[in-house]
Design a protein around this nucleic acid. Sequence first.
DNA 1: ATCTACACTTTGATATATCAAAGTCAAGGT
DNA 2: ACCTTGACTTTGATATATCAAAGTGTAGAT
Lengths: 230, 230
Amino acid sequence: MHSTAVENYLKHLFLEQNDDGEELVAMGRLASAVGVTPGTATTMVKTLAESGLLDYEPRGGVRLTPAGRKLALHVVRRHRIIETFLVKVLGLDWSEVHDEAEDLEHVISDRVLEKIDQILNHPERDPHGDPIPTARGTIDTAEHESLATYDAGTDVSVVRVLDQDPEFLQFLARHRLRPGQRVAIQGRDEVAEAMTLRPESGNPVTIGIGKAAKILVRAATDAAPERRES
Amino acid sequence: MHSTAVENYLKHLFLEQNDDGEELVAMGRLASAVGVTPGTATTMVKTLAESGLLDYEPRGGVRLTPAGRKLALHVVRRHRIIETFLVKVLGLDWSEVHDEAEDLEHVISDRVLEKIDQILNHPERDPHGDPIPTARGTIDTAEHESLATYDAGTDVSVVRVLDQDPEFLQFLARHRLRPGQRVAIQGRDEVAEAMTLRPESGNPVTIGIGKAAKILVRAATDAAPERRES
DNA sequence: ATCTACACTTTGATATATCAAAGTCAAGGT
DNA sequence: ACCTTGACTTTGATATATCAAAGTGTAGAT
């Protein structure tokens, strides 16, 4: 099997790449995503390129091959199912499960993974709203706009949070701003770069545009179903 | 933290040592328990001795220090709680959980472990009947005699199975010979080195003395309730 | 056209964990 | 006393994954 390190490079490359996966991801970006120095990433990337898991253009960057993408999706699937399991079955807080899953994703067997998936009744999204790849390697690629793009007076519901910082996640939970929850945009101040939100079942709260950009939402009137792609 | 390798050496040393842990375990024995060559074990053991986790007498053997024992017990606790969890919550077969737990025991955090322990309501024994060390580092050291020491005509109940071979475990399950189940010893043939058993809810079956020695039992004459169901 | 800055690659080193094979010790048999 | 044997240790090598620092390539600034 593949080492933890290999799985991590592939996973982070997948998470860094653009939707189509056609564009090269710069080495520096991959290195900092994985948490290693650029030199280390260069070495590993050469190995992965030789194994046919990614294409490497020196001084250009890297891109997953179909084989690499498949493996990356499998790692992401494990990560997100584990997170869901930790929250729904073991009752951990959603702010703590990301780090736990970082380790578990590399040792959980497929047998255990599929048991968990079954117990959870094949969830489509994890507690952060991130889509869970299927066992066959497909993933929901539906795009959502960030809260930061919406104007005052709009009603939206939270779909996904692109930030794993435990303190921020605890903040969101406290203010009823988790995926699935509705929120009205009460005000937006371009000068202060802040938005004031009124969560359906919480008190008004003001957050910066930077953090708002990490919260993906959809118009609350909209009920469009989502589509999957291979 | 300690590496997977370190945890494995300590765990296996704990499992190989005698009850009091006073006697030295020979290097060759440790090496084959861990699954490495003797030279590898020598190298690692020197490191562990320097860390104060075990005492090493060259050409004599090794023995856990109190610090090493504490760590070993923690690893064993993780292993056995995970096994119990995999059977009771995820519904895996008791014959497959040992190998699964071998990997998981090194990455499960204490936070997750204690959640699982709580969900399982602090089990005292794992699916094989092995006692689970407590979080405080104590372990049930009750001794049980093996089935091989009993004579024909005795009624016993299975307490513990000292064998992780999946095929043997499946065999035992098929014949209703799991921990908590009762069995009458119908016959014993010293020449054939075989015993014929009549499980309470199964058909008679004959097993060799060697395998019978792996099954620990207690006399079933008293009405002492066994907490195990399923 | 050249310079400069930054991103990237290369190089040399470290840490961990392992094995194969050579060397060594010690206990028991002769 | 000596040899043999088997268990153990030592040595030299490999694989993986990493970093720091030196070297290099390239694209935009002057």
